[in-house]
């Protein structure tokens, strides 16, 4: 029974990981791609790890540690990507309504 519940949780995680991958393909610019890539893959990974806890209860401590590491490192890598993109003036989608950071730091040449 616990294996069935574990499988369902792992499957739900896989659906979120798929959403993350699809988001990277479908979103219009790099910032929005980073957004979908970070969030959906974080919960996807966490659900897969939690599902594994039900398969191997003796791994629970280690798996929860992994959840903690994913939660701490995943947003940091997205900050780094987003900040580097903005510093390099990676073009935004034309749907963008406001960019307060560029108003302060000055526009780039769009290169």
């Amino acid at each position: 029974m616990s294996e069935l519940i574990g499988s369902i949780i792992v499957l739900a995680g896989a659906v979120f990981l798929f959403a993350a991958g699809l988001g990277v393909l479908r979103m219009p610019d790099s910032y929005n791609r980073i957004q979908t890539g970070t969030k959906a893959s974080t919960l996807g990974t966490i659900l897969v790890l939690l599902g594994l806890c039900l398969f191997h209860p003796e791994w629970t401590g280690k798996l929860l540690l992994l959840v903690l590491f994913v939660l701490m490192t995943n947003p940091v890598s997205s900050h780094a990507l987003a900040r580097a993109s903005h510093a390099r003036h990676v073009p935004r989608t034309e749907k963008t309504v406001v960019d307060r950071l560029e108003e302060i730091e000055g526009p780039g040449d769009g290169a």
Partner: peptide, 26 residues
């Protein structure tokens, strides 16, 4: 908030037309 964030992303990604108004605010 984490769960809400993921449902939000999933809804955006699986919708036929991506209707977003992105921007950078302070």
């Amino acid at each position: 908030e984490l769960v809400r964030a993921n449902l939000h992303v999933a809804r955006l990604v699986f919708s036929p037309r991506i209707d977003i108004h992105p921007g950078i605010v302070e």
